[in-house]
Design a protein around this nucleic acid. Sequence first.
DNA 1: CTGTCCATGTAAGGCGTTACATGATTGT
DNA 2: ACAATCATGTAACGCCTTACATGGACAG
Lengths: 192, 192
Amino acid sequence: MSLKHAILGFLSFQPMTGYDLKKAFDHSVQFFWPANQSQIYRTLADLNEEGLVKLEIIAREERLDMKIYHLTIAGQAEFHRWLSTPLPHQDYREAFLIQVYFGGKIGDPETILLLQHMIQDVESALAQLVAMYQIYMEKIEQADARRDLFFNMLTLEYGISSNQAALNWLNSVQDRLKAGSYSPLELKDLTR
Amino acid sequence: MSLKHAILGFLSFQPMTGYDLKKAFDHSVQFFWPANQSQIYRTLADLNEEGLVKLEIIAREERLDMKIYHLTIAGQAEFHRWLSTPLPHQDYREAFLIQVYFGGKIGDPETILLLQHMIQDVESALAQLVAMYQIYMEKIEQADARRDLFFNMLTLEYGISSNQAALNWLNSVQDRLKAGSYSPLELKDLTR
DNA sequence: CTGTCCATGTAAGGCGTTACATGATTGT
DNA sequence: ACAATCATGTAACGCCTTACATGGACAG
């Protein structure tokens, strides 16, 4: 369960509330592991039952108690175990490719429209990732925690290069359809 | 709901049983939309309730009836509607990137091990896709349904180039860690 | 005679999403 | 005065996974 371990990961930097965790997700791992609020609260309850986190309760009259979650020793151990254990192979789902797969069933103009939407999506995702990357670039210049930042940036590198690959492919498909050419690419152009 | 529409897509070529559909998935869209058997049967039941498919029942004494699913007119219409409608943006989840993100918490040797496992996974996925691609390449040479095959191949192109991008990144990370260098890549090397 | 293929499903559980619900504090 | 932020959760639903269950036909 990756969400559990991502939470443990954040708590290993510092104790936090569920609310803080939600923000931490949104500002960092969001693009490869989004988490919504209700999920975070439920998972924190689970982690507590499993003894991987413990909570410090701050009573506030007239409001719900504030709960600050801390890693336990067991939580730390579990996080380290997970962090150095290869994950089983993961399935990917790309609904858009289903549309492409059956593209023969509709006309090229319709497919080109779909591609254009997709291109916009990917371009805006790419722009966001690039913007984040540039911020990191500045931060890493004069940083103490250079090594930590480096690993954070690696995920952005992944995001940028995979979105770039998708974009290149989308453009190539669009070009071919516009040219009325139904020619697959050469393998050697795909693998490099 | 993409599974529903993928099923409609397959049925638009020819009527099939649930069993046939499972095989169709496994031999074609598996790598970007895996579907398991129980899911397919349940979804077929739903499609039937919605009037998008109808079933021809073949009674076989001493065994469960065999059910051949046909698209209805409504099913065809719904499939075409879906096929030419842009999909809302999709979230992606890459558990492996969570491990990378928190890579600073463990030592480089452990991370390198994780990378090596990942590289193996990606390489074998890539090899499978390339093999499928080559089979298609031969088929498309002397085909009547050249256009349909072309769209099928496009999804493989996508799979190959995105896996290749992932592989390049994995190797680059591994090289840097082995060299003890915590330097992010230049943006210009990522976007092209 | 053993295993794989054909062909059907049910049951239970896990993870994620969306919508609902509350209420104080801080900023414009 | 109004909106956004801080801070907590619950309920219901949807999709997917894993395991379980049945049984004939056919090939080695």
